[in-house]
């Protein structure tokens, strides 16, 4: 194993688009995107349950695709676009998924919630009117220990109409 001092001392500098804003950050070169977000970007909303790619709590959007940030090295993110749970609300308004997760009871302890929200957003961005089966499929990498998933499905389904309504009213900013 390399000496920790050389590892911890060696810093990297990257620029990315983080939650819609340009962001420069430097960090110890060994760090995962998860650690960079939580420890160096002051964004603790993204969670971790295993740091081995097993639970989905750390999911974020990388160039619009859901990824497990515990499996991505921070160094890989130079020049890329990252969206975390902190980037879902716009102009002080929650994303419809956030509204419906809160209303439907889809967040109990809330620990898995950021991962579910970004994964569901990626699904709805790609497929605005998914079936229950498609929802289950796309969320199958996210573990939730509290809800039994049903209220999460209901929240995703409830958000479909709200998102459509936002689109019709021209408020595409939110979605």
């Amino acid at each position: 194993m390399p000496e920790s001092n050389s590892l911890t001392k060696q810093h990297l500098h990257i620029s990315m688009r983080l939650n819609g804003e340009p962001r420069e950050v430097s960090f110890a070169s060994y760090k995962t995107l998860l650690e960079v977000l939580r420890e160096d970007c002051d964004l603790p909303g993204t969670k971790h349950g295993c740091e081995l790619g097993e639970c989905g709590a750390c999911a974020v959007l990388l160039d619009g695709e859901p990824v497990l940030s515990c499996l991505i090295i921070g160094a890989e993110c130079d020049g890329r676009e990252v969206v975390t749970v902190e980037g879902l609300a716009k102009d002080g308004k929650l994303h419809p998924l956030q509204e419906t997760f809160a209303d439907c009871g889809a967040a109990q302890c809330g620990y898995c919630t950021p991962g579910f929200l970004v994964t569901a957003k990626a699904l709805l961005d790609r497929c605005p009117n998914p079936s229950r089966e498609q929802i289950k499929e796309s969320l199958s990498g996210n573990l939730c220990r509290c809800t039994g998933y049903q209220q999460i499905f209901e929240a995703v389904e409830a958000s479909i109409a709200r998102i459509a309504a936002c689109r019709v009213s021209g408020n595409s900013e939110v979605v």
Binding site: P44, G45, T46, T84, V85, E86, L88, A89, L94, L97, Q98, E99, F101, A102, D103, A107, C109, G110, T113, P114, L117
Partner: peptide, 8 residues
């Protein structure tokens, strides 16, 4: 505490 949870 719903809002706190869905905003991380």
């Amino acid at each position: 505490d719903g809002r706190a949870k869905v905003t991380g």
